[in-house]
Design a protein around this nucleic acid. Structure first.
Lengths: 232, 232
DNA sequence: TTTTATGTTAATCTTTGGTTAATGTATTTT
DNA sequence: AAAATACATTAACCAAAGATTAACATAAAA
């Protein structure tokens, strides 16, 4: 549950700051945006596990923002914060794809319980895309669930979570460019100098493993990303 | 969604009847019980897709009933109806394993939306067959009802409830990953540092028992969970 | 040729898991 | 009621696994 990324969009700066601090104390990684516009910009730039949106905001209200977020991402859970308890609002929220509704003023402990319940629920749902976990990479076979990379006549190689996720993503883009930025935001959940270097380290590790099959190779596309090349 | 069975436990006969009718008009198959005692009797006699429990009831309140229901069945969704909005009550409800909370007076349309959302969610969850209680684990045989683990030429080993549940869950995932989080939420009903360590202690105990058969092993998948490996 | 991006190794830091034993807690036996 | 028991949780310590960072080397682009 630790380190889950939350996008908090709240126009009241005091309340926003307090709530952010409270969530961070409880081991969430919180990004605060002070209006709908900024919220959507931040949403596009990163990958979040949960969005908490204030309904009443100037320029762009919570519902509009939620609809925009849903266009980009059908999965991410959304919680609305609202002072209103009007039925139409609640129904409107559910229609836009809300996961829960919280009336202000609310108890922080209740919010925490709800957040945990929602994140846990989402985690246990079957995701159609991410569900594939068996890959053939040249003579190799990758099981990304058990994190095993097998090669005929060899003991299976155990992969670390990062090694495994990276190789899986390369395999999904087989022979095609896997953008650097994509791997960083999806796997490292952050895109900066250090995570970028970290990724390079992992590329080196994978190359070492993949040496067993001379027809498999990870190529760099300068400034763009990497390419898992599988010859013939 | 049609014909789903709902157990409605509500002591106010007027309100109960109205709600029952409303739900039946909306194609649910509703059984009404007028107190906790009767509710539990009816629950044991049939299989329901959802329970809607009033919190405030004479003799046996909704929480107590929910706990009893949870003992028999960890899966069935529970919605509480309550006039109170006290924080402790909400938290208590979630701890007992509630799926949602509704404050009276509530809007019937909202209730309907919630019911549908919850039933749909539960339907999409994968549930391993929890009724099975006989397992073959290599040369071992586990009876999870009597909590006996037998090995040819040995006195049967008596297992404690936790030992047994954990081994059973591992057996259900035989040779596949049993996610740590799943065992914690299902068996320990909580997922935190201490329950996690407690589980590790139980894994150690099970490993000790399983040593008798060198083809049976509990492997760890770092950060993910455990795997009951049964060789050939 | 100067800057920027990548390759690689090793050191350091962090998180997770294994194990034993002590402590807590409820139930049963005496 | 006290003692015994069975079981579960917590603590403590160590080991293993994994991730990041630093440092230096090399390659590609501006």
């Amino acid at each position: 549950m630790e380190g889950k990324k939350i996008l908090l969009v709240e126009d009241d700066p005091n309340f926003g700051a307090v709530l952010k601090d409270y969530l961070m104390i409880n081991d969430f990684d919180v990004t605060l945006a002070k209006n709908g516009m900024e919220g959507f910009e931040k949403f596009k730039k990163d990958t979040y596990d949960l969005c908490i949106l204030d309904v009443m905001m100037p320029y762009k209200d919570g519902y509009t923002l939620a609809r925009e977020i849903r266009e980009k991402n059908q999965e991410v859970p959304i919680i609305f914060l609202t002072a209103k308890t009007l039925k139409e609002d609640v129904l409107k929220g559910y229609k836009v794809g809300a996961d829960d509704y919280l009336n202000k003023p609310f108890d922080s402990e209740v919010l925490l319980v709800k957040i945990k319940a929602i994140i846990q629920r989402k985690a246990s749902e079957v995701k159609p895309d991410t569900n594939q976990f068996e890959f053939t990479i040249g003579k190799f076979h990758l099981n990304s669930k058990l994190r095993f990379l097998t090669f005929p006549g060899q003991e299976p190689i155990k992969l670390s979570p990062k090694e495994c996720e990276l190789l899986k993503m390369l395999a999904l883009f087989e022979n095609d460019l896997m953008p650097r930025e994509l791997a960083l935001t999806k796997i490292w959940r952050d895109d900066n100098y250090f995570t970028s270097r970290s990724m390079d380290v992992y590329i080196a590790k994978l190359r070492k493993f993949l040496k067993l099959d001379e027809n498999v190779e990870i190529l760099n596309v300068h400034g763009e990303g990497f390419r898992l090349l599988i010859k013939q």
